[in-house]
Design a protein around this nucleic acid. Structure first.
Length: 219
DNA sequence: GCGACAG
DNA sequence: ATCTTGTCGC
């Protein structure tokens, strides 16, 4: 069941503020062995959303699903959720193995209203979620940690996530809690899925490739 | 008016 | 995100 979404930026801003109040930043899951990731590729006015459900204990993919759908909203900075989250929810409806944790391509609470698309997805789907983004938002500031290659991301005076560079050769990734998960688990789970082969955590990398591949199969 | 801006 | 081949580097 897909809820109604705001249709204007003004409504969306109010919606984000409402979502922000509901976010839980503590671990609300019993296990985290099944991790899913969603990503979307675009071709003109069509979105190709891909989901990969990954079993961390056996290090294997247990489910893959793709859907294509009409793009309903343009990309507007800070309002990515309007463009992407509806497709994620449609995809989730088709998925059999509901994951313990979801990785969403984009930011979680690392957002001007602490309501990035990963948080909004997490609240609506009621699934613990992590936002993993490839680019920072312009107003982030950073604070070093005692760990190499790991910085805390700050927005105003608040910690909102991490900047982490797993391998020197790549740009860093930006990890922030989405919903029903702590900062520490967001970081640990994401880090546990990184390899020296790719910049992104395994399920997210696979979802990215699957979406791109699916797009290419369509004329 | 111009450039920047999660994807 | 997308338009795009080979190519440099790990």
């Amino acid at each position: 069941m897909i809820p109604k979404f705001p249709t204007t930026i003004v409504e969306a801003k109010i919606y984000q503020e409402g979502i922000a109040k509901k976010i839980i930043l503590s671990d609300s899951f019993l296990k985290s062995s099944i991790v899913g990731a969603f990503d979307i590729a675009y071709k003109e006015n069509t979105a190709f959303a891909a989901g990969v459900i990954y079993d961390c204990s056996t290090k294997s993919v247990i489910e893959e699903k793709v859907i294509s759908d009409r793009v309903e909203f343009p990309y507007v900075p800070n309002y990515l959720f309007l463009r992407e989250v509806p497709h994620f929810l449609t995809l989730l409806d088709r998925i059999v193995n509901i994951p313990d944790i979801m990785i969403i391509d984009g930011h979680g609470i690392a957002h001007p209203r602490t309501a990035g698309s990963a948080s909004i997805f997490g609240i609506i789907a009621n699934i613990p979620s992590i936002g993993v983004a490839k680019k920072p938002m312009k107003f982030f500031s950073y604070k070093e940690t005692n760990q190499d290659n790991l910085d805390e991301v700050y927005l105003n005076q608040n910690r909102v996530g991490f900047r982490y560079k797993f391998e020197k050769k790549w740009n860093p990734i930006y990890i922030s809690p989405g919903h029903k998960i702590s900062f520490e688990s967001s970081y640990n789970i994401t880090k546990g899925l990184l390899t020296s082969k790719h910049k992104l955590p395994i399920p997210q990398q696979l979802a990215h490739l699957l979406a791109a591949k699916y797009k290419k199969t369509i004329i």
